[in-house]
Design a protein around this nucleic acid. Structure first.
Lengths: 343, 343
DNA sequence: GCCGTAATCTTTATCGCTAACAAGAGGCCA
DNA sequence: TGGCCTCTTGTTAGCGATAAAGATTACGGC
């Protein structure tokens, strides 16, 4: 009668299994697998071989509890649909790459109550740090962040007071600068097209800064329009058409982001509208997509990668142990082909 | 001399603190916070109040270790820059929303060795399930997945054998169907423009299926061109220009994705090329962006949201306890305005 | 041959929480 | 009144790893 091998016990492997297989203590196995402490080359090799043969995967849940250290960094962003955030993420993971830290992403959909929940969830994993988009938070959220006991970096925006550290640009100033450039180019009947989202504070601040600069020049917005949902490019077309129908004498449209700006630009080009002579256009963000359009939309880049890198550096402790650091980056204005050069 | 309050001990709070503050055992606090077991309304209220007052955040590291359960689902995707993946993610998190499970994202950048590492990292957290994009993996990765001891769902592609479950579409077939539709419309001198990435197996399979269908009709690709990196929309323009210069008599271009297809379309429209009369165009994915272009590019949607939902259902156990399920979805062909209607 | 120091490896005691079982408090019925 | 439930709450014993400190060689030097 052939001996059948016993059914493979699906018990998950532990350090003990590796320890028994290699004939050393669990502690030694642990040291080998973490590259910590002195272990002879021979033992190390034996342990590694046993671990590989068994297919052992360490249990970080247990490890984290024992060491009181977890190599995770929570990253909390409002959305993944807006390419801005994946790019910030890229900056973060690039920078974290060689620190042993690992980003974990949470998405809030621009909902404050959801942000509260995500922060709570993140903290329950006792991460080594937290990176949160935006500086507007509920009182509860702010309290959690303040008591987290680990570095907290609020990113993208610097128009306000951070809980701990902060890396970003001033959107108030960004809007203001764009307005100045537009005015300097001689445009006067200016409209703003943006998003409906009341919780997109950065877009709101850009518009505020924009309007403030207009006001200083004795002007106000000639028209405005807001959208929500749907394809941004398409909405840009539709809104541009709608607003030009309503206010045919506009000479400039400032879009709250490049996607709707790109849609507007395409629409204008199709109609044979003279851009930037008859009508000037500008967006915000400096998205890669714009490179593929027939002509370059004026924009301002939001320093996304740099923001990610900066935040990651702070969390990783590369920035020293200063308790609360603020880094304000300066967005670069690019007038492209959609703002005329002289007044 | 005024008594100064003692320095706030930054020791992190534990169940014991809440237990002392509310005068019940740790176990009871645990029960209240997890909504498990019978606890009187009065006690519950007292505990919740104490927890909130202290700002207690449970430690899931300890909880997970004790209960041997972790409410995380690992999601492993090649990239966040391609909107396809965030959309799959959306399907996953929508579906996971009310299950208590939480997705954790890992990105591989299309690198197999990085995929191995990410899978290893994920498993070290002992998640409740794993969702991995693609069905091509290293032997090591396949072994880890097979031994994970939790549901594993490979997504996006069904042209192959899964480790456990699988949800996706057949890219071979997708390429084939598109080729048939193009041939049926009477096009004969057909080019393929795609990505350089050797590890984008799905794009590769689409091209294979496409070529196979051409071969059956006694044809082969009249030209082809590949790119890597940069703005896809821009690359689409450049490649289209390059390939048409080289092969001016082409009557169709099949792009491996909608972004380069969109770039190509914009370029053709600018040049006044008669689309779809003189030249037909088609892409793949059905991205939202296309809605904003001047005319609708032919495409095939990749069922991204449905794939995400399906995978999440399996991981959440909503699909029953079948050991290995395969779900093949059928992409919808949309000829848009860039394929002529009759042969 | 004995002792000291360094290099390796082992032992012991948590980490913070939860499963499983135990125990006290009332209430109901005979 | 006593026994038996039911409803709540408490006790005990880990989960799988690591920190810290102890034990065991290894090896020279005198």
């Amino acid at each position: 009668m052939p001996l059948t091998s016993p059914p493979p016990k699906r018990r998950t492997l532990t350090l003990r299994d590796v320890s028994e297989a290699s004939g050393v203590s669990e502690m030694t196995v642990s040291r080998v697998l973490r590259n910590r402490g002195e272990v002879s080359a021979a033992t190390r090799a034996r342990v590694l071989q046993a671990a590989k043969a068994l297919g052992y995967v360490p249990n970080r849940i247990a490890g984290g509890l024992a060491s009181q250290r977890v190599n995770l960094v929570g990253v909390i962003i409002p959305s993944l649909s807006n390419m801005v955030f994946p790019e910030v993420l890229r900056g973060i993971s690039d920078e974290l790459e060689d620190t042993g830290l690992q980003p974990v992403v949470g998405v809030t959909n621009y909902l404050p109550e959801r942000e509260d929940r995500v922060i709570y969830e993140m903290l329950s994993w006792r991460p080594s740090g937290l990176i949160v988009a935006g500086i507007e938070h509920s009182d509860a959220a702010r309290a959690m962040l303040a008591n987290a006991g680990v570095p907290v970096v609020e990113i993208m925006d610097v128009d306000g007071t951070p809980v701990d550290s902060m890396v970003g640009i001033s959107h108030l100033r960004a809007g203001r600068e764009m307005a100045k450039a537009i005015l300097a180019a001689g445009y006067r009947r200016i409209a703003f097209l943006g998003t409906q989202m009341p919780n997109d504070h950065r877009a709101r601040k850009r518009m505020q800064g924009f309007e403030a600069a207009l006001a200083e020049a004795g002007l106000e917005l000639a028209d405005r329009e807001f959208y929500s949902g749907g394809s941004a490019l398409l909405k840009g077309r539709e809104m541009t058409e709608a607003v030009l129908k309503r206010s045919p004498d506009l000479d400039f449209i400032y879009y709250s982001n490049d996607m709707i700006g790109g849609g507007g630009l395409l629409w204008c080009l199709e109609r044979g509208i003279d851009v930037p002579g008859q009508l000037g256009l500008a967006g915000f963000n400096g998205v890669e997509l714009l490179d593929g359009l027939p002509c370059r939309l004026a924009t301002m880049d939001a320093c996304r990668i740099e923001i990610g890198r900066g935040a990651a550096e702070i969390v990783a402790g590369k920035a020293g142990d200063a308790p609360g650091i603020t880094i304000e980056l300066t967005p670069r204005l690019d007038l492209g082909d959609t703002v005329r050069k002289t007044a």
